[in-house]
């Protein structure tokens, strides 16, 4: 559990905390400042740079990852809040042998990316959506991806990819 590491507080905010998280199936124990954002922890401490930072203001969804199986914006969560929890990032989506997750495959086949910056967040949001709603309508896909901005594709192929993934088993 989250424990201050020894000593007395010198000034408020100087405490370092210890957290243990499971990320893509591996257990990590790390020391973090309470103000460390989960996205910075994942990118900088764990070196998992697939999770992008777009807006840094909770709006764009580029930083989406799964916390206990649900898509969340990791720029708006403290690493200490994730202590003891299960995290999946885009790096954890493919199988161990490199086989892509059906959602990743559907993005590839439907040309659902151009520059690719929004893509990790889109894949994480879309796979979370299909867990909650395995057979969505086009409108439900659009609403379900409301929190993810793409500046390139115009969204059309992203929506097609998610609908295709729903029929190809990404909703399992």
């Amino acid at each position: 559990m989250c424990q201050p590491l020894g000593g007395t507080t010198i000034r408020r905010g100087s405490l370092i905390m210890q957290i243990t998280v499971i990320v893509n199936g591996a257990v990590h124990t790390s020391e973090v400042e309470p103000r460390t954002l989960l996205v910075h922890y994942v990118r900088e401490t764990l070196g998992l740079t697939g999770t992008n930072i777009g807006c840094d203001t909770s709006s764009c969804g580029a930083c989406s990852l799964h916390l206990n199986g649900e898509a969340v914006k990791s720029c708006t969560i403290l690493a200490v809040q994730a202590d003891g929890q299960d995290i999946t990032t885009i790096e954890g989506m493919a199988a161990a042998d490199g086989t892509m997750h059906p959602m990743q495959q559907a993005f590839m086949e439907n040309h659902a990316l151009q520059c690719g910056y929004c893509t990790p967040g889109m894949v994480m949001a879309a796979s979370s959506l299909l867990k909650e709603n395995p057979d969505p309508t086009e409108r439900e896909v659009r609403l379900g991806l409301e929190g993810n901005l793409c500046r390139c594709t115009g969204y059309h192929n992203i929506v097609q990819a998610v609908l295709a993934a729903a029929t190809n088993g990404a909703n399992r």
């Binding site: 989250c2 905390m17 309470p34």
Partner: peptide, 11 residues
């Protein structure tokens, strides 16, 4: 953007 430093306690 990073918040100003603070202490954290979980109830």
């Amino acid at each position: 953007m990073i918040p100003a430093a603070f202490d954290y306690v979980r109830a």
